[in-house]
Design a protein around this nucleic acid. Sequence first.
DNA 1: CTTTAGCACTCCTATCCCCTGAGTGCTAAA
DNA 2: TTTAGCACTCAGGGGATAGGAGTGCTAAAG
Lengths: 350, 350
Amino acid sequence: MELTARKKEILKVVTEQYIGSAEPVGSKFIAQAMGGRLSSATIRNELADLVELGYLEQPHTSAGRVPSPKGYRLYVNELMERRSVSDQEAAQINEALGGQMRELDAIIAQAGQAAASIVSYPAYAVAAGKERVTVRRYDLLSVDSSSFIAVVMTDDSRVKSQLLHTQVPLPADQLPSLANLLNTHFTGVGPEELGGRLMGLTSQLPAELFLPLSLTIEYATAVVDRSAQNQVYTTGQTQLLRQPEFQDLSRANELMSLLTDRKDSLPVLDENTPMQILIGPENVNEALKDASVVVASYDIGENMRGLIGVVGPTRMDYAAVAARLSYFAESLTKMFGKNNQLPPKEDEQS
Amino acid sequence: MELTARKKEILKVVTEQYIGSAEPVGSKFIAQAMGGRLSSATIRNELADLVELGYLEQPHTSAGRVPSPKGYRLYVNELMERRSVSDQEAAQINEALGGQMRELDAIIAQAGQAAASIVSYPAYAVAAGKERVTVRRYDLLSVDSSSFIAVVMTDDSRVKSQLLHTQVPLPADQLPSLANLLNTHFTGVGPEELGGRLMGLTSQLPAELFLPLSLTIEYATAVVDRSAQNQVYTTGQTQLLRQPEFQDLSRANELMSLLTDRKDSLPVLDENTPMQILIGPENVNEALKDASVVVASYDIGENMRGLIGVVGPTRMDYAAVAARLSYFAESLTKMFGKNNQLPPKEDEQS
DNA sequence: CTTTAGCACTCCTATCCCCTGAGTGCTAAA
DNA sequence: TTTAGCACTCAGGGGATAGGAGTGCTAAAG
């Protein structure tokens, strides 16, 4: 059943006050904040109802009220005033995005850093590639008698390269035809199939060509392997320790270890959802049961999506974080769109 | 003046006990630990001397003694029994190094992780490249009418590549001669000079060749730029919070922020020093004044050096950490030596 | 001269208790 | 339905107190 407007107003006051102060909110304060139209006794009756309905909680009998996860959820869904960022905040965000960013990984990492500094909570960033990446093109460049460079371009337009060594002499003049072979038989397939196709060719090739071929395929498999992608970058963990709810180390510890050692289990976002707010127990992850996460996504070129998330106490300032994060994500999308080429991204080899 | 053997023995007992317990060590305990040859009163006299000489400290009048940085230093230099790792520890380290590691950055990061798990303290890892990296070779691969792939190989044998877009039509058949030009005029120079040489050629080239040339040079500059190298990876920060000395958040906070947000100022190691122990105030960095750092280096191929460091309380178990870290560094050197090619390293492009 | 037993003393730590104040729930009247 | 009034609850802070670990010093013994 729908709450009365008055109950909602009270819930809103409690939530916003608590977000700011981290202290349970009492009836007297609420009465005053609502302009004194009602006495604190009336508020107390309403508060008792709200507790019974599960929107508020009481740390102990003689304390004020605190929003429950259900309360926060209602607040986020209906009560919260959707803010947009102020000019000043926008400026700050743009500045944070300003630095010249070359390599994609570096950009992702820096985006995380910028987000953390903008929202004052720890943040994480991931580049979520396509589900399945395939090789679009191979090039082989001769280096010396026993080594060559393999250049692999994927169907999402990333290029990686690596110096490969065959321990045995290499027929340099055969490299172009080998590349040809690769481009004919080993493009458009994912990591799981590359190895299989290689098997099929084993018998048909002279040994001195098979070695460089298999090295290249091995390399390409690694490039295209999904598990090698989506690295998660986290920053601003220290911000956590500033929050009063994490003064108690045991709680902080769990979250810290999630943010530093188990990054992979941070929540990701469903395809096509621009932003999501996960409050306390809405998180599947045990360590996040009494924390909240806000995740937004942005586009990196045509085929990739970036994710940027913020972790904070359930008492997080949802309105501000959501506003800043979505502005941030939009800015990133624009940034990647502008240089309609994907931004310069390095690649490296040993 | 040199300490008497007995004073040294006492210092050793105090240090080792304190390392284990984190509690000030009393005279009675010491007497007992030394086999009861001396009474606690005698020990007390010796302790008073050691305090006066600056090797020990007393948290308050009626507390036991704790090693001072000077005391730890003597312990590390003379008293500590240099351990080697146990078979079990060795196995654990080898296992931690086991995972297949492809990209150099990933290896470095994983080395840090492994180190942290092995020593139970936060660890950091850096690949310290040569002071000055230059380009050894360029290749340009045609993609379509307005884009091409630039492949850059550095003199330390890393290969990076990137997709570059000229907004205007590109004379594909000219790419080989352009690469030729690059290889003649733009090799063997560092980031600071590449731009300059480009200037010199401005007038001599038709415009449609100058654009791809300058894009390539710009990219190469970024590849070779020292500041883009030596990224520092940290892990295991949570281990810090487990240490009793960092229960107090304010102290933990400083170190945490060093380890997450100001990684760059973590101590590095002088060339040619295999390992170094920095105790408390021996650290230049203010945030490390009451922490200790152990850093070891290992070789990555011929031209690069990796650094792996551990951060902990001054009360750190130096013997164990030093043993494990040096074994770890040796294993890494061997690992990189074995595949005498540098390990497969990916590179990426947008 | 060194070592040791003895003892008074210091000072940290934990615990209890009490008090205060914020905030409540309930009742009865408006 | 609202409100005033009041008794009640409970967390948190501030001494006071007791306990205990460990010291420094002294004086005697080796």
